[in-house]
Amino acid sequence: MPKPLAEGHVRGRATVMIVDDVQDELGRVWQTAEVISPDDRLPFELAVVEVVTNAVKHAKSPSGDHVELDLELEVRRDLLLARLFELGAQPVNLPENAGSMPDPDSEAGRGLALARQLLTTITCERRDGANVWTLTRKPSEDS
C-alpha cells in the first residue's frame, strides 16, 4: 500500500475544546496534502467535525467518568479516512431515523445526516469497549 500523503492524530476529553483541536489538526494535514482539492477537503472536514461534535454532545460513560475521543486521520490520493474512537463510552444507540434529515422546523439532528451526504461511507461499530466511527471519502479524479 502506498505511503499516505499525510496523517494526523488528536486525543482528548470529549469536550467542546477538542473540536477546535480537530479543526487545527485538519488544517495541518491539508498543508501537507495540498494535492487534495478543496472540493474534497471541505466536505470531508465538515463531516469529521460534525461527527466529533456529535460525540462531544452524545457520548456518555456508563460510570459517569469522562469520555475520551481519539481521532486518527489518513490522507491518500485515493482515500480520505478518519477513525474516531469514543473511549469509555456506552455503546451507541442510534435511532432508526439516524442519518435522515429531520423536519425543517427541527432544531437538531442534522449532523449525522449531513455527514452521510458528504462522505462515501460512514460506519459505527463496537470494538474493544469503544465506539469506532469510520469515515471515508473518495477524492474526485481531479485531486
Rank of each mutant, 00 (worst) to 15 (best):
G27D: 15
V52H: 01
R28Y: 08
F44D: 08
S61G: 09
G129V: 14
H66E: 15
E74S: 11
E25L: 02
V56I: 14
L42M: 12
S100M: 15
E141C: 09
G109T: 02
S61M: 07
K60C: 08
I122A: 00
L118C: 13
R76K: 11
P4A: 03
M1K: 01
S100F: 10
L87K: 06
E34C: 14
W133H: 06
D24C: 07
N97I: 13
V16K: 04
I36L: 07
P104D: 10
L135N: 06
D128N: 09
V67D: 03
F44G: 08
E107Q: 14
T121K: 03
D103C: 14
W133I: 00
R13S: 13
E74D: 07
V92S: 07
D70C: 06
A55C: 15
D21G: 03
V75L: 13
P102Q: 12
L94V: 06
A115R: 03
E34K: 07
A130T: 05
A6W: 05
A89T: 13
L84E: 12
K60W: 02
R116H: 09
S106Y: 13
L73M: 02
L94F: 08
R83K: 00
T136G: 09
I36A: 07
V52D: 09
R28E: 15
H58P: 14
V48C: 01
P139V: 04
W133E: 12
V51T: 00
R137E: 10
S100A: 13
P102C: 00
T15F: 14
A33T: 11
L69N: 01
D105L: 15
L42D: 14
H9L: 05
A33N: 07
A33W: 10
